[in-house]
């Protein structure tokens, strides 16, 4: 069991976020409002990192291992040396996964929209390919 008494970290964060949302935001002038919104966003980042961060770290390590490196610095160095040039598709897949994992914590709304856009483009391309094959 944890050493610290309840509430848990997550619950303390939610309390602060709710205070910002319910007490500060409605009464803030325009300048303060922008900052209050920013603070609420930051609280959201911390909450998501606490809840899914560990799982994402694990997945990330596994993805790095599949390319024969153990951290981001090694991956950057490998890309720069050209040693991954022949595994470009695999590399892109890992990079997309890594970036999506960061977005899930930092900016899930961005990820959601970007993935929908990408799906729409893919569907259009498939439809065009289909039309070309049939016509």
């Amino acid at each position: 069991m944890a050493l610290q008494d309840p509430p848990a970290t997550e619950d303390l964060l939610v309390a602060v976020r709710e205070y910002l949302q319910e007490e500060i935001l409605p009464n803030a002038d325009q300048a303060k409002r922008v900052h209050a919104l920013m603070a609420i966003k930051i609280m959201g980042v911390i909450e998501r990192e606490l809840s899914i961060g560990l799982r994402l770290e694990g997945e990330h390590e596994e993805a790095l291992r599949s390319l024969g490196v153990s951290n981001e610095a090694e991956l950057a160095a490998a890309i720069r040396s050209g040693s991954l040039d022949s595994r470009r598709d695999e590399l892109l897949k890992v990079l997309r996964h890594t970036t999506a994992s960061k977005l899930m914590v930092a900016s899930p709304a961005f990820l959601d929209r970007a993935q929908k856009e990408a799906a729409a483009i893919a569907a259009r391309q498939a439809k065009r390919a289909d039309a070309a094959a049939n016509g």
Binding site: A39, I42, V45, L92, R96, T99, L103, S107
Partner: peptide, 23 residues
Amino acid sequence: SLDTALIGRLVCEVEWDVLALLS
């Protein structure tokens, strides 16, 4: 400031756009 605090975590938005162009 709060926005410079947050911005480091948003670099991945640009990474996503760069990846889309690379792909």
